[in-house]
Amino acid sequence: MNFTLRVWRQNGPKESGRFEEYPAHDIPSDASFLEMLDIVNEGLIEKSVEPITFDHDCREGICGTCSLTINGIPHGPGRGTTCQLYMRKFSDRDVITVEPFRAAPFPVLRDLTVDRSAFDRIIQAGGFISERCGSAPDANALPIPKTIADLAMDAAACIGCGACAAACPNSSAMLFVSAKTGHLGLLPQGKSEKNRRILKMVRTMDEEGFGNCSNYYACEAVCPAGIPAAFIARLNREYTVASAKETVGAAY
């Protein structure tokens, strides 16, 4: 198959970027999108043009590193990550526009790579369950109803890719944050810190400069882990409850 790529090139965080056009010739339809870029890069190196920089690692759809916006859609058409997108999904001679994930809190580092450390800082604010290593009670000491465990697992499936914030017209990170607060808050182990966790994570999210959720549901549409926006509703509710408790000084 043959394509024309319009790729965002930007040398560094402070430099200004631009689109460059590259032909992609004889691409096997079984190649993944990233393998297509590999082929294009080999060609660029031939011509002594610096290859396109893009983040990737596992290439299995689980590590959340790959982060391309393809034709305006983070991770491109269909469910799943960029690395799990295969060229047979496109038609011959398509013009494909490739951009980095865009959001103020995700500054571009180079070409198609962005800095998503804001997500790490949100987790550091409270996205964990405090316990002391080695002193945990027996795992079966506290049974958890399968339905709860499964729901928590739905939320825990988040791979932290950032596509939600990249797709959101407001660059809101609500789907990511609500997935983590949902996962930890649903489990009995996480209950004691629940309110504090929610307050801290949402406040950090705001400080990092993410937008507000307007219930656009674009995040849900692109989320490779299929996290439902229902978790955002849950967070909206739980955050207000937590704030109320904090306000009246109730134990939180």
Binding site: R6, F19, T69, N71, G72, I73, T97, E99, R102, A103, A104, P105, A167, C168, P169, N170, S171, S172, G209, F210, G211, N212, S214, N215, Y216, Y217, A218, E220, A221, V222
Partner: peptide
Amino acid sequence: KENLAAHPQKYAVFAPMKTTIFAR
């Protein structure tokens, strides 16, 4: 105001993804 600040650079290609015209 905040939402504009959070999303300064729009994508070159517009794709609605699930977001309705009413919402937008």
